[in-house]
Nucleic acid binder design. Structure first.
Ligand SMILES: [Zn+2]
Ligand SMILES: [Zn+2]
Ligand SMILES: [Zn+2]
Ligand SMILES: [Zn+2]
Lengths: 135, 135
DNA sequence: TTACACTCTATAGTTACTATAGAGTCAAGT
DNA sequence: ACTTGACTCTATAGTAACTATAGAGTGTAA
Protein backbone atom coordinates (compact mmCIF):
# COMPACT_ATOMS: atom_id res chain seq x y z
CA UNK A 1 0.00 0.00 0.00
CA UNK A 2 1.07 3.61 -0.52
CA UNK A 3 1.45 6.15 2.24
CA UNK A 4 -2.06 7.56 1.91
CA UNK A 5 -3.68 4.23 2.59
CA UNK A 6 -1.29 3.49 5.43
CA UNK A 7 -2.21 6.84 6.95
CA UNK A 8 -5.91 6.07 6.78
CA UNK A 9 -5.51 2.57 8.13
CA UNK A 10 -3.15 3.51 10.94
CA UNK A 11 -4.77 6.77 11.93
CA UNK A 12 -1.43 8.60 11.65
CA UNK A 13 -1.12 11.50 9.24
CA UNK A 14 1.06 11.19 6.17
CA UNK A 15 3.49 13.76 7.54
CA UNK A 16 3.71 11.92 10.83
CA UNK A 17 4.59 8.67 9.05
CA UNK A 18 7.34 10.38 7.09
CA UNK A 19 8.52 12.01 10.32
CA UNK A 20 8.70 8.65 12.09
CA UNK A 21 10.77 7.32 9.23
CA UNK A 22 13.15 10.26 9.43
CA UNK A 23 13.48 9.76 13.19
CA UNK A 24 14.22 6.08 12.76
CA UNK A 25 11.09 4.71 14.42
CA UNK A 26 10.06 2.84 11.32
CA UNK A 27 12.40 1.64 8.62
CA UNK A 28 12.49 3.20 5.16
CA UNK A 29 10.12 1.19 2.97
CA UNK A 30 10.60 0.06 -0.62
CA UNK A 31 9.83 2.53 -3.39
CA UNK A 32 7.99 2.32 -6.70
CA UNK A 33 9.63 3.33 -9.95
CA UNK A 34 8.09 6.72 -9.44
CA UNK A 35 9.73 6.98 -5.99
CA UNK A 36 6.53 6.45 -3.99
CA UNK A 37 6.83 4.62 -0.66
CA UNK A 38 5.26 1.14 -0.57
CA UNK A 39 4.34 -0.45 2.75
CA UNK A 40 3.50 -3.96 3.89
CA UNK A 41 1.38 -5.23 6.79
CA UNK A 42 4.24 -5.34 9.32
CA UNK A 43 4.68 -1.61 8.77
CA UNK A 44 1.06 -1.10 9.76
CA UNK A 45 1.63 -3.16 12.88
CA UNK A 46 4.62 -1.11 13.87
CA UNK A 47 2.59 2.05 13.54
CA UNK A 48 -0.11 0.52 15.71
CA UNK A 49 2.50 -0.27 18.35
CA UNK A 50 3.78 3.28 18.22
CA UNK A 51 0.24 4.62 18.48
CA UNK A 52 -0.43 2.52 21.55
CA UNK A 53 2.72 3.82 23.16
CA UNK A 54 1.99 7.43 22.25
CA UNK A 55 -1.48 7.07 23.75
CA UNK A 56 0.35 6.35 27.00
CA UNK A 57 2.46 9.43 26.38
CA UNK A 58 5.73 7.55 26.03
CA UNK A 59 8.27 9.68 24.19
CA UNK A 60 9.53 8.70 20.76
CA UNK A 61 12.88 7.96 22.35
CA UNK A 62 11.32 5.60 24.84
CA UNK A 63 9.40 3.88 22.07
CA UNK A 64 12.61 3.46 20.13
CA UNK A 65 14.16 1.81 23.18
CA UNK A 66 11.22 -0.54 23.56
CA UNK A 67 11.46 -1.59 19.93
CA UNK A 68 15.18 -2.18 20.29
CA UNK A 69 14.55 -4.40 23.32
CA UNK A 70 12.04 -6.43 21.35
CA UNK A 71 14.83 -7.41 19.01
CA UNK A 72 17.09 -8.68 21.76
CA UNK A 73 15.38 -11.91 22.77
CA UNK A 74 16.62 -13.41 25.99
CA UNK A 75 17.13 -10.07 27.70
CA UNK A 76 15.23 -9.83 30.96
CA UNK A 77 12.38 -7.39 30.61
CA UNK A 78 13.21 -5.37 33.70
CA UNK A 79 13.98 -2.32 31.60
CA UNK A 80 10.48 -2.32 30.21
CA UNK A 81 8.97 -2.48 33.65
CA UNK A 82 11.30 0.26 34.92
CA UNK A 83 10.34 2.51 32.08
CA UNK A 84 6.66 2.14 32.82
CA UNK A 85 7.28 2.71 36.52
CA UNK A 86 9.25 5.88 35.81
CA UNK A 87 6.49 7.02 33.53
CA UNK A 88 3.87 6.42 36.17
CA UNK A 89 5.79 8.64 38.55
CA UNK A 90 6.01 11.46 36.06
CA UNK A 91 2.30 11.26 35.35
CA UNK A 92 1.55 11.27 39.05
CA UNK A 93 3.60 14.37 39.68
CA UNK A 94 2.03 16.14 36.73
CA UNK A 95 -1.38 15.41 38.18
CA UNK A 96 -0.34 16.76 41.55
CA UNK A 97 1.02 19.94 39.95
CA UNK A 98 -2.13 20.48 37.97
CA UNK A 99 -4.33 19.99 41.00
CA UNK A 100 -2.38 22.66 42.84
CA UNK A 101 -2.73 24.92 39.82
CA UNK A 102 -6.43 24.25 39.69
CA UNK A 103 -6.86 25.20 43.33
CA UNK A 104 -4.86 28.41 42.81
CA UNK A 105 -6.95 29.36 39.82
CA UNK A 106 -10.16 28.75 41.75
CA UNK A 107 -9.01 31.05 44.53
CA UNK A 108 -8.01 33.70 42.05
CA UNK A 109 -11.29 33.45 40.21
CA UNK A 110 -13.23 34.16 43.37
CA UNK A 111 -11.45 37.48 43.82
CA UNK A 112 -13.75 38.91 41.21
CA UNK A 113 -17.50 38.54 40.77
CA UNK A 114 -18.19 39.95 37.35
CA UNK A 115 -18.54 43.06 35.27
CA UNK A 116 -16.64 45.49 37.42
CA UNK A 117 -14.68 48.23 35.70
CA UNK A 118 -11.21 46.94 35.06
CA UNK A 119 -9.50 49.20 37.61
CA UNK A 120 -11.32 47.32 40.33
CA UNK A 121 -10.95 43.82 38.97
CA UNK A 122 -10.02 41.63 41.88
CA UNK A 123 -8.20 39.23 39.63
CA UNK A 124 -5.89 41.78 38.11
CA UNK A 125 -5.32 43.21 41.56
CA UNK A 126 -4.31 39.81 42.84
CA UNK A 127 -1.90 39.32 39.99
CA UNK A 128 -0.24 42.71 40.47
CA UNK A 129 2.48 42.76 43.12
CA UNK A 130 2.39 46.54 43.41
CA UNK A 131 -1.21 47.25 44.35
CA UNK A 132 -1.13 44.05 46.26
CA UNK A 133 1.56 45.07 48.71
CA UNK A 134 -0.20 48.37 49.23
CA UNK A 135 -3.29 46.75 50.73
CA UNK B 1 19.70 48.66 37.38
CA UNK B 2 21.21 46.52 34.64
CA UNK B 3 19.78 43.26 33.36
CA UNK B 4 21.80 41.04 35.69
CA UNK B 5 20.41 42.68 38.79
CA UNK B 6 16.90 42.66 37.36
CA UNK B 7 17.28 38.96 36.69
CA UNK B 8 18.32 38.26 40.25
CA UNK B 9 15.62 40.43 41.75
CA UNK B 10 12.84 39.11 39.54
CA UNK B 11 13.86 35.48 39.45
CA UNK B 12 13.73 35.46 35.64
CA UNK B 13 16.85 34.57 33.72
CA UNK B 14 18.62 37.21 31.65
CA UNK B 15 17.69 35.43 28.43
CA UNK B 16 14.08 35.23 29.49
CA UNK B 17 13.98 38.96 30.12
CA UNK B 18 15.41 39.70 26.69
CA UNK B 19 12.95 37.21 25.23
CA UNK B 20 10.01 38.95 26.89
CA UNK B 21 11.22 42.22 25.44
CA UNK B 22 11.45 40.72 21.97
CA UNK B 23 7.95 39.31 22.32
CA UNK B 24 6.57 42.65 23.41
CA UNK B 25 5.64 41.66 26.96
CA UNK B 26 7.84 44.33 28.45
CA UNK B 27 8.87 47.51 26.71
CA UNK B 28 12.40 48.14 25.53
CA UNK B 29 14.25 49.95 28.33
CA UNK B 30 16.67 52.86 28.10
CA UNK B 31 20.28 52.11 27.22
CA UNK B 32 23.61 53.29 28.60
CA UNK B 33 26.24 54.78 26.32
CA UNK B 34 27.72 51.31 26.09
CA UNK B 35 24.34 49.95 24.91
CA UNK B 36 23.47 48.15 28.15
CA UNK B 37 19.82 47.95 29.13
CA UNK B 38 18.83 50.02 32.18
CA UNK B 39 15.68 49.19 34.12
CA UNK B 40 13.57 50.98 36.69
CA UNK B 41 11.29 49.67 39.44
CA UNK B 42 8.15 49.51 37.27
CA UNK B 43 9.98 47.07 35.03
CA UNK B 44 10.55 44.84 38.01
CA UNK B 45 6.87 45.02 38.85
CA UNK B 46 5.88 44.03 35.36
CA UNK B 47 8.12 41.01 35.56
CA UNK B 48 6.54 40.06 38.87
CA UNK B 49 3.11 40.30 37.25
CA UNK B 50 4.25 38.09 34.40
CA UNK B 51 5.74 35.60 36.84
CA UNK B 52 2.48 35.39 38.76
CA UNK B 53 0.62 34.73 35.56
CA UNK B 54 3.10 32.14 34.34
CA UNK B 55 2.82 30.33 37.66
CA UNK B 56 -0.85 29.91 36.76
CA UNK B 57 0.23 28.65 33.36
CA UNK B 58 -1.31 31.50 31.44
CA UNK B 59 0.28 31.75 28.00
CA UNK B 60 2.39 34.75 27.03
CA UNK B 61 -0.36 35.74 24.65
CA UNK B 62 -2.94 35.71 27.41
CA UNK B 63 -0.64 37.73 29.62
CA UNK B 64 -0.24 40.27 26.86
CA UNK B 65 -4.02 40.54 26.62
CA UNK B 66 -4.32 41.06 30.36
CA UNK B 67 -1.74 43.82 30.27
CA UNK B 68 -3.52 45.48 27.39
CA UNK B 69 -6.79 45.41 29.34
CA UNK B 70 -5.10 47.05 32.31
CA UNK B 71 -4.45 50.06 30.12
CA UNK B 72 -8.05 50.45 29.09
CA UNK B 73 -9.65 51.81 32.26
CA UNK B 74 -13.40 51.77 32.25
CA UNK B 75 -13.69 48.49 30.37
CA UNK B 76 -15.72 45.93 32.23
CA UNK B 77 -13.49 43.15 33.45
CA UNK B 78 -15.57 40.34 32.05
CA UNK B 79 -12.80 39.36 29.67
CA UNK B 80 -10.46 38.76 32.56
CA UNK B 81 -12.96 36.54 34.27
CA UNK B 82 -13.70 34.68 31.05
CA UNK B 83 -10.04 34.03 30.48
CA UNK B 84 -9.61 32.53 33.92
CA UNK B 85 -12.75 30.45 33.48
CA UNK B 86 -11.50 29.14 30.13
CA UNK B 87 -8.21 28.35 31.74
CA UNK B 88 -9.83 26.48 34.55
CA UNK B 89 -11.63 24.30 32.04
CA UNK B 90 -8.43 23.47 30.20
CA UNK B 91 -6.70 22.55 33.43
CA UNK B 92 -9.64 20.40 34.45
CA UNK B 93 -9.64 18.50 31.20
CA UNK B 94 -5.89 18.00 31.37
CA UNK B 95 -6.31 16.52 34.83
CA UNK B 96 -9.03 14.19 33.59
CA UNK B 97 -6.86 13.06 30.68
CA UNK B 98 -3.90 12.41 32.93
CA UNK B 99 -6.00 10.43 35.37
CA UNK B 100 -7.19 8.21 32.53
CA UNK B 101 -3.60 7.84 31.39
CA UNK B 102 -2.53 6.95 34.89
CA UNK B 103 -5.16 4.24 35.15
CA UNK B 104 -4.15 2.82 31.76
CA UNK B 105 -0.50 2.74 32.75
CA UNK B 106 -1.35 0.96 36.00
CA UNK B 107 -3.25 -1.72 34.13
CA UNK B 108 -0.42 -2.12 31.67
CA UNK B 109 2.15 -2.37 34.42
CA UNK B 110 0.31 -5.25 36.01
CA UNK B 111 0.60 -7.32 32.85
CA UNK B 112 4.17 -8.04 33.82
CA UNK B 113 5.67 -9.06 37.15
CA UNK B 114 9.35 -8.70 36.64
CA UNK B 115 12.45 -10.23 35.11
CA UNK B 116 10.87 -12.40 32.48
CA UNK B 117 12.75 -12.87 29.22
CA UNK B 118 11.68 -10.14 26.87
CA UNK B 119 9.76 -12.46 24.52
CA UNK B 120 7.30 -13.09 27.31
CA UNK B 121 7.03 -9.56 28.63
CA UNK B 122 3.37 -8.94 29.28
CA UNK B 123 3.81 -5.23 28.74
CA UNK B 124 5.33 -5.52 25.29
CA UNK B 125 2.71 -8.08 24.43
CA UNK B 126 -0.04 -5.71 25.47
CA UNK B 127 1.45 -2.93 23.36
CA UNK B 128 1.75 -5.10 20.25
CA UNK B 129 -1.43 -5.35 18.19
CA UNK B 130 -0.19 -8.39 16.31
CA UNK B 131 0.55 -10.89 19.06
CA UNK B 132 -2.38 -9.42 20.86
CA UNK B 133 -4.99 -10.33 18.28
CA UNK B 134 -3.53 -13.84 18.06
CA UNK B 135 -4.29 -14.70 21.66
C1' DT C 1 -4.37 15.68 -23.31
C1' DT C 2 -5.88 17.37 -19.63
C1' DA C 3 -7.77 17.07 -15.33
C1' DC C 4 -7.30 15.24 -10.84
C1' DA C 5 -5.72 12.86 -6.92
C1' DC C 6 -1.76 11.50 -5.05
C1' DT C 7 3.11 11.67 -3.74
C1' DC C 8 7.83 13.63 -3.36
C1' DT C 9 11.53 16.76 -0.81
C1' DA C 10 12.67 20.62 1.76
C1' DT C 11 11.57 24.14 4.76
C1' DA C 12 9.26 26.89 8.28
C1' DG C 13 6.18 27.27 12.16
C1' DT C 14 4.41 25.91 16.82
C1' DT C 15 5.69 27.27 22.74
C1' DA C 16 8.55 29.32 26.03
C1' DC C 17 12.34 29.28 26.79
C1' DT C 18 17.78 27.69 27.17
C1' DA C 19 22.36 27.65 25.50
C1' DT C 20 25.81 28.79 22.98
C1' DA C 21 29.51 31.89 19.99
C1' DG C 22 31.88 35.85 19.28
C1' DA C 23 32.29 40.52 20.25
C1' DG C 24 32.05 44.63 23.04
C1' DT C 25 31.82 47.37 27.92
C1' DC C 26 33.53 48.71 32.17
C1' DA C 27 35.62 48.91 36.75
C1' DA C 28 39.43 47.50 39.65
C1' DG C 29 44.12 46.14 40.31
C1' DT C 30 49.07 46.38 38.94
C1' DA D 1 48.69 52.19 30.45
C1' DC D 2 47.47 47.42 30.58
C1' DT D 3 45.21 43.45 31.87
C1' DT D 4 42.05 40.72 34.11
C1' DG D 5 37.41 39.50 35.06
C1' DA D 6 32.67 40.11 35.36
C1' DC D 7 29.22 41.71 32.80
C1' DT D 8 26.55 42.70 28.58
C1' DC D 9 25.44 42.76 23.58
C1' DT D 10 23.33 40.39 19.11
C1' DA D 11 22.34 36.52 16.49
C1' DT D 12 21.58 31.82 16.03
C1' DA D 13 20.39 27.01 17.11
C1' DG D 14 18.26 23.65 19.95
C1' DT D 15 14.23 21.55 22.58
C1' DA D 16 9.42 17.68 21.32
C1' DA D 17 6.44 15.98 18.25
C1' DC D 18 4.47 17.11 15.10
C1' DT D 19 1.71 20.37 11.31
C1' DA D 20 1.56 23.07 7.22
C1' DT D 21 3.12 24.78 3.12
C1' DA D 22 5.53 25.42 -1.62
C1' DG D 23 6.81 23.68 -5.77
C1' DA D 24 7.58 19.78 -8.41
C1' DG D 25 6.72 15.19 -10.09
C1' DT D 26 3.56 10.62 -10.73
C1' DG D 27 -0.22 8.00 -12.22
C1' DT D 28 -4.74 7.18 -14.07
C1' DA D 29 -9.18 7.90 -16.14
C1' DA D 30 -12.19 10.55 -19.23
ZN1 LIG E 1 8.65 8.41 30.10
ZN1 LIG F 1 -12.58 41.04 37.32
ZN1 LIG G 1 -5.40 29.84 28.84
ZN1 LIG H 1 7.94 -7.26 31.32
Amino acid sequence: MKIGELAKRSGCSIQTIRYYEKEGLISAPARTDGNFRVYDTPALEKLAFIKNCRALDLTLDEIKQLMALQHLPGTPCEKVNDMIDAHLKIVESRITDLQKLHADLKVLRQKCGHARPIEQCGILDELSPKSHSRN
